[in-house]
């Protein structure tokens, strides 16, 4: 496949998934004296096409997976998967951020480890930090919160399951 521009990548996703892509935004920035440009693409997609969308992304080029961020936005939890494609070509790299919302009543997302094995640590992290169940994860142990952080406390959550009660007052 030839190298796509950022508009073409958005088109490429829109063609395949139609209205299941809820929002697509291209962020254009420039830096330095010569004002060379770079692009970040932000997709908001429906949960039903999540795995397909990742597979579709892999057809462009095997992407570099960076990390998964998580936002607790009330009723839902938003997971943002950060990827980049076209690395190695001078100034041509494009960051692709795919966000998907998962309702707190059914906190489940499919694992992408079968496609990108490097996502394992990040998937283990969102399990313990947000309480999301990653279905099909090859290793579901906790990773960063071991030992003295109790189960059922999810540090990235803004609701009553947050870690506020664990903070010790050091200056009493």
């Amino acid at each position: 496949m030839k190298n796509l521009s950022s508009e073409e990548i958005v088109q490429y996703f829109n063609d395949k998934f139609k209205e299941k892509i809820k929002d697509a935004r291209i962020e254009k920035r420039s830096a330095g004296s010569k004002k060379k440009e770079f692009f970040n693409i932000w997709f908001k997609i429906d949960k039903s096409i999540f795995k397909e969308a990742i597979n579709h992304l892999c057809e462009i080029q095997f992407p570099h997976f960076a990390v998964i961020s998580g936002n607790d936005i009330g009723e839902n939890i938003e997971l943002v998967y950060h990827f980049s494609v076209y690395y190695g070509v001078r100034l041509k790299e494009i960051s692709i951020n795919i966000s998907v919302e998962v309702p707190k009543s059914n906190l489940k997302i499919e694992s992408i480890c079968d496609i990108i094995p490097g996502a394992l640590i990040s998937e283990r992290e969102i399990q313990e930090m947000l309480g999301v169940t990653v279905e099909g994860i090859p290793d579901n142990r906790r990773i960063f919160l071991i030992g003295n952080i109790p189960e059922g406390v999810y540090p990235w959550r803004k609701d009553e399951k947050g870690p506020q009660k664990l903070v010790r007052d050091m200056y009493e």
């Binding site: 952080i149 540090p155 903070v167 010790r168 050091m170 200056y171």
Partner: peptide
Amino acid sequence: TGGVFHESYSVAGP
């Protein structure tokens, strides 16, 4: 003193 990490939930103390 705990420094910049004084508010952390996983700090036991200075």
